[in-house]
């Protein structure tokens, strides 16, 4: 059974001129895949990622995540599913500026009610795994871009999610650091993690095992 299963997903943004951003999207992503979603800006890739991440809703169709139908969820249920099943990595890192690296990494566990001691221990393990143990007590402002993104990846991993959704994870990084971050994703994928990366950078897409191209809200060139 695919971990992500989209059937005939449609999404229209209502406005003065309604915008049909996703048109009959059908997509299956299996466990253990490393997939990139590519498209130019306005192609609907961010909307698709938001729907995959249960951050946004869709109008028609069905989306199953790990066998669970994601439709008409309450805010609480959506928050819980995001917390337990999805790890997010963002272009702008989205770390909380007044918390140090360990606290940032541990934050998702805070919302699971894990004790402070335990979540800090788990957060330390993730930082060690990503080679950041010596930066554990630094604030985000004291870290380089690559280090910040590694902290963000550690945070996405801490709840042991079913998938990692990365939105332009290398968008704010130089090419050398981008390469390092992609290496980390490949490494994680090799260890069995399912990863979906949204990007417009062909260099990033090439390092994934499968590229899904979106043009004007439609998937084309499906391999």
């Amino acid at each position: 059974m695919p971990i992500i299963d989209l059937k005939d997903i449609n999404k229209t943004y209502q406005g003065a001129v309604p915008l049909h951003v996703l048109k009959d999207i059908n997509l299956e992503i299996e466990r253990g895949e490393l997939v990139s979603i590519m498209g130019s800006s306005g192609s609907g890739k961010s909307t698709l990622l938001n729907i995959l991440g249960i951050l946004d809703t869709y109008d028609t169709g069905e989306y199953h995540l790990g066998g669970v139908l994601i439709k008409n969820l309450s805010e609480n249920r959506a928050a819980e599913l995001r917390n337990r099943m999805i790890g997010f990595v963002f272009q702008s890192f989205n770390l909380i500026s007044y918390k140090n690296a360990v606290e940032n990494v541990a934050l998702p566990l805070f919302y699971q009610g894990v004790s402070r001691k335990k979540r800090n221990r788990l957060a330390m393990e993730q930082l060690e795994r990503l080679g950041l143990a010596d930066r554990a007590h630094h604030l985000p402002g004291e870290l380089s871009g690559g280090q910040k993104q590694r902290v963000a990846i550690a945070r996405s991993l801490i709840t042991n999610p079913s998938i990692i959704l990365a939105d332009e994870p290398t968008g704010a990084l130089d090419s050398k650091t981008s390469h390092d971050v992609m290496q980390i994703f490949r490494q994680l994928n090799a260890e069995g993690m399912t990863i979906v990366i949204v990007t417009h950078d062909p260099g990033v897409g090439e390092q994934t095992n499968r590229i899904i191209r979106l043009v004007d809200g439609q998937i084309i060139d499906r391999p």
Binding site: G53, L55, E75, N76, A79, E80, R82, N83, R84, F88, N94, I96, S97, L107, P108, Y111, Q112, R155, T159
Partner: peptide
């Protein structure tokens, strides 16, 4: 706003 958005994405419930 951004921080609260991050928290919500990471699983904070409205009540939190």
């Amino acid at each position: 706003t951004t921080e609260i958005g991050i928290r919500r994405a990471l699983g904070a419930k409205p009540r939190d």
